[in-house]
C-alpha cells in the first residue's frame, strides 16, 4: 500500500483526483532532482528514485481501474482470471458482431448517413455496458471504503477484494469494444 502512503492517503478506492493531482505536483517539486543539485550524490540518487516512484504511484492511483487492480494485488490476490458470467460474454460477443457488420457495411459502400446510424446503435450498446460496469465498480468501491478503518475481519476484506477482482477483470472486454469502435467510427 506504498502508493497510498506516499500520498498520505487512506487506502480507499474513491479518490479525489483533483486533490491527488495537487499533491502529486507538490511532492514532485519537493523531490525534483533539479532542486537537489547541491546535495550529496546519495541524496540526489534518492531524489531521483522518489521521483520515479511518485510518477508510478500517480499513474496508478489516478485511474480507477488501475487503482482497484493495485489494491487487489497489494493484498496478495490476482485479478480474477476465471470466466466472466455467460450473459456478459454473450453480450460482448454480440456487440463484436455488431462491429463486424459495421465494417462490412463500410466496405460495401453504405452511405454516410446509414453508416452513422449503424455506428450510433453500436455506440449506444457499448455505452450501456460501460455504464453498467462503472456502476458496479462504484458500488464495489463504496463497499470497500466503508470497511477501511473498521474492525472488519480479514475474511470479510478478502471477500470484498475477490468481488472487486471479478469486476475489474471484466474491464478489458469493454475497453476492447470501445477501442474497436473508435477505430471504425471515431467521434
Amino acid at each position: 500500500m506504498k502508493y497510498f502512503e506516499l500520498f498520505e492517503l487512506e487506502p480507499r478506492l474513491n479518490v479525489d483526483t483533483a486533490a491527488l493531482e495537487r499533491k502529486f505536483h507538490a511532492l514532485s517539486r519537493e523531490h525534483h532532482p533539479d532542486f537537489h543539485t547541491l546535495a550529496t550524490p546519495e541524496e540526489r540518487a534518492r531524489a531521483l528514485e522518489t521521483t520515479a516512484l511518485l510518477n508510478d504511484a500517480y499513474r496508478t492511483l489516478r485511474d480507477s481501474a488501475r487503482r482497484a487492480e493495485y489494491l487487489v494485488r497489494s493484498h496478495g490476490l490476482e485479478i480474477d482470471s476465471s470466466q466472466a458470467p455467460a450473459s456478459m460474454l454473450m453480450e460482448v460477443f454480440e456487440i463484436n458482431e455488431g462491429l463486424e457488420e459495421l465494417r462490412a457495411a463500410r466496405r460495401s459502400g453504405t452511405g454516410a448517413e446509414a453508416m452513422a446510424e449503424k455506428a450510433d446503435a453500436v455506440r449506444e450498446r457499448i455505452a450501456d455496458k460501460r455504464r453498467t460496469h462503472d456502476a458496479s465498480l462504484g458500488q464495489a468501491f463504496d463497499r470497500w471504503d466503508a470497511l477501511v478503518g473498521t474492525e472488519a475481519s480479514e475474511e470479510e476484506r478478502q471477500d470484498h477484494l475477490r468481488t472487486l477482482a471479478e469486476i475489474v477483470a471484466q474491464a478489458s472486454y469493454i475497453r476492447n469494444l470501445e477501442r474497436e469502435l473508435d477505430e471504425e467510427a471515431p467521434r
Binding site: 482470471s81 466472466a84 455467460a86 460477443f93 478489458s172 472486454y173 475497453r175
Partner: peptide, 13 residues
C-alpha cells in the same frame, strides 16, 4: 462453448 480472456478482452465461440 463461449469463452473470454480477461487478460486481453478476446472472446471465442
Amino acid at each position: 462453448g463461449l469463452v473470454g480472456a480477461p487478460e486481453c478482452g478476446d472472446v471465442m465461440k
